[in-house]
């Protein structure tokens, strides 16, 4: 009887696991373009992804063990940094740009607002070494990880030997980041025939296609390009954008076109986080002055929308929110990292 019960429980468990794997592997809609990177399947049972998740949430990455990747890329904000225009790092240093959301990165060709990083495995080196972010170095991090009994076990689990090096650590971080996939918004449900838009959302969708979709291309709502969207220059930051990377004057003030997915969670907006509300963003596009438009801007004329049209457009943009991604516990802080207390 006991054995029978055990078998039944086992079968149910196995069945559940298969369904879970099937759901996770099947979560990519067919209307997506080919990604640049392979997306880890079944992330919750993928040891490399889980090692990357530990590293992502661990303060050990910063020079004084106070800041992790998640400090500026919080899961509840679709891995962006809400309520800070410019992100901050160790010793309360303030950076120069707003931390973008992290999801669907496999479709991103280059990383950072100016596209300085050409490969996802190399990305973590930038915040790790930046004095205003983690203020550490890959050398210090690897030394700390090699001394950590906790990570010795975790690396062994993934790589079947005890070698801890930068390639392994960076690949694990990349695997976790690539596993952050968000395609379960109302928009995706509509495209998959599982939901339908309201009249207002439909009207907003038409406005979006007419005015925004050239740069924010469906279905990713980004375009792997760099554009000057006509923002007045912040003279204190004087951020030259893409020009710093390319060395080309025509790239001055150009920044990566960000995705519009999960907008409700990733505010404030723009590379320097200057707008807190979507309404301010629409106002900006409606009032760009001609002098700025002369500046090699990606926008040729102000996009003027009436108040009603603006409301319709926003109602469409809200269909790009993916709550099941943002509140997915599989992506959240791993309990393994909680300090062990004596009372336990």
């Amino acid at each position: 009887m006991f054995i029978k019960g055990l078998i039944t429980t086992g079968t149910i468990f196995l069945l559940f696991s298969f369904i879970r794997i099937w759901v996770l592997q099947d979560r990519l809609p067919e209307y997506l373009p080919q990604p640049f990177y392979q997306i880890p399947t079944n992330p919750i049972n993928n040891d490399t992804v889980q090692l990357g998740r530990l590293l992502f949430y661990d303060n050990i990455l910063s020079v004084n063990n106070t800041v992790s990747c998640a400090s500026c890329h919080s899961p509840f904000n679709a891995f962006a940094h809400t309520d800070h225009d410019l992100s901050h790092g160790v010793f309360d240093s303030i950076g120069t740009r707003n931390a973008p959301g992290l999801f669907n990165l496999a479709w991103q060709e280059e990383f950072m607002w100016d596209g300085a990083i050409h490969h996802i495995e190399a990305q973590a080196l930038a915040p790790l070494h930046d004095q205003r972010e983690m203020g550490s170095s890959i050398n210090d991090l690897i030394e700390k990880l090699q001394k950590s009994d906790f990570y010795k076990v975790e690396f062994l689990k993934v790589y079947k030997d005890s070698i801890i090096n930068s390639s392994r650590a960076l690949k694990a971080l990349a695997a976790f980041e690539l596993s952050l996939v968000s395609f379960d918004s109302k928009y995706d449900k509509m495209r998959g025939g599982r939901a339908s838009f309201t009249a207002q959302e439909k009207a907003g969708y038409v406005l979006f296609k007419n005015h925004c979709s050239r740069c924010h291309k469906e279905p990713l709502f980004s375009s792997n390009t760099y554009e000057d969207n006509g923002l007045p220059i912040d003279s204190l930051l004087n951020d030259m954008g893409r020009e710093v990377v390319s060395g080309r004057k025509e790239d001055r003030y150009k920044f990566n076109v960000p995705t519009l997915r999960n907008l409700s969670f990733t505010y404030p907006y723009m590379h320097d986080g200057r707008f807190k509300k979507l309404r301010q963003v629409l106002d900006h596009y409606g009032t760009i002055d001609n002098q700025v438009l002369m500046r090699n801007s990606g926008i040729k004329a102000p996009i003027f929308l009436s108040l009603d049209d603006g409301a319709d457009l926003v109602s469409f943009l809200l269909t790009l929110n993916d709550k099941s991604f943002v509140f997915n516990p599989d992506n959240a802080f791993p309990k393994k990292l909680l300090p062990k207390t004596k009372d336990k």
């Binding site: 990083i117 050409h118 490969h119 495995e121 930038a126 090096n165 990377v245």
Partner: peptide
């Protein structure tokens, strides 16, 4: 250079990898 992070002599701890810009 266009690939990701290498090991051995290509390990970024050798100080031969730009951290602010890939390559």
């Amino acid at each position: 250079a266009a690939r990701g992070i290498g090991e051995g002599d290509l390990d970024p701890i050798k100080g031969m990898y730009w951290t602010w810009q890939s390559g």
